[in-house]
C-alpha cells in the first residue's frame, strides 16, 4: 500500500530526471556516429578555447566566493549571535526570500541599478551581479553553522574575560568554519555553472562555462562536448553535496 503511493513520484523522477541524465552520460561518451569514445572529455582539456573558459570560470567563481564571504560573514554573525528574536525573524525572511526569485528577474533588476551608476555590461557588472545573486547562498550556511553554538556562549566568554579578538578567533570562527566551507562550495559551484547573469551582465566578459554549454548545445549542435561538460558539473556538485552532507550530519542538522 505504502509502496504504491511512492510509485507515481518515483516513476516521474525516473522518466524525467534519471533517464535524461543517463542519456546525458551516454551522449558524453559517444561520437556523432554513436560509437563509444573518450574524445569529448579529452577535448575539454585539449582544446585551448574550452580550457580557457573553464579556467576563466574558476577564477570568476573564486572571486565571487571571496566577495560573498566578506559581505555575508558579518551579517550572518549579527543575525545568529546578536539579533533579538524579532530582528532575527525579519532578517532571516529578508535573506532567504531571494532564494525563490528567478535569476533572470534578479539579474535584470541588478542591471537597473548598475546602469544608474553607469556600470555597463562587462566584468565588473557580472561580478557584482553574481555576488548579489549568490549572497544568500553564503549567508545561510554560515548562519546555520553559527546558530548551532550554545546561546550564551559569547556572554560566557566575555564574563571569563575574553576580549573581542579572542571571542572572534577562539569562539565564533570555529563554529562558523563548517558554514563558511559549505557556503564557499555552494557559491563556487553555482557561479561556475551560472549562465543567465554572465550572458545578461557580462558582455564580452560573460563567456563562462554556463554560457559555453548553452552555445554548444543550442547554438552549435555540439552534443558530445556539451554533455561531457554538463556531466562534469553534475559530478562535481554531487561530490560536494555528499561531502557537505557528511559534514553537516556530524553537526547534527
Amino acid at each position: 500500500m505504502r509502496g504504491l503511493l511512492l510509485l507515481p513520484f518515483l516513476t516521474f523522477l525516473g522518466i524525467f530526471f534519471y533517464l535524461p541524465f543517463t542519456l546525458l552520460v551516454y551522449y558524453s561518451f559517444t561520437d556523432r556516429e554513436g560509437r563509444f569514445t573518450f574524445e569529448n572529455y579529452i577535448e575539454i582539456f585539449r582544446n585551448p578555447s574550452y580550457l580557457d573558459t573553464v579556467a576563466y570560470s574558476l577564477l570568476v567563481s573564486l572571486l565571487v566566493i571571496a566577495l560573498t564571504l566578506v559581505a555575508a560573514l558579518p551579517a550572518a554573525v549579527y543575525v545568529a549571535v546578536f539579533a533579538n528574536s524579532w530582528e532575527r525573524a525579519v532578517l532571516l525572511v529578508a535573506f532567504i526570500t531571494p532564494f525563490w526569485i528567478d535569476f533572470l528577474i534578479r539579474a535584470w533588476a541588478m542591471k537597473n541599478i548598475l546602469y544608474f551608476f553607469d556600470i555597463r555590461e562587462g566584468f565588473l557588472a557580472m561580478i557584482l551581479g553574481l555576488v548579489y545573486d549568490f549572497l544568500p547562498y553564503m549567508f545561510l550556511p554560515i548562519y546555520l553553522a553559527l546558530s548551532r553554538a550554545p546561546e550564551n556562549m559569547i556572554s560566557a566568554a566575555r564574563v571569563l574575560g575574553a576580549g573581542w579578538w579572542t571571542v572572534i578567533s577562539q569562539v565564533l570562527l570555529p563554529y562558523a568554519l563548517p558554514g563558511i566551507f559549505a557556503g564557499a562550495v555552494l557559491v563556487g559551484l553555482l557561479s561556475f555553472a551560472e549562465f543567465v547573469i554572465p550572458s545578461l551582465l557580462g558582455g564580452t566578459s560573460g563567456f563562462t562555462v554556463g554560457a559555453l554549454v548553452y552555445t554548444l548545445i543550442l547554438k552549435g549542435d555540439q552534443w558530445g562536448v556539451g554533455s561531457a561538460l554538463s556531466v562534469l558539473v553534475t559530478l562535481l556538485t554531487l561530490a560536494a553535496v555528499i561531502l557537505l552532507g557528511r559534514q553537516i550530519k556530524g553537526g547534527g542538522a
Binding site: 541524465f21 546525458l24 548553452y214 543550442l218 554538463s230 558539473v233
Partner: peptide, 9 residues
Amino acid sequence: IAEAVALFM
C-alpha cells in the same frame, strides 16, 4: 543548466 541539457537531449 545540466538538468536542462539532459532534458533537451
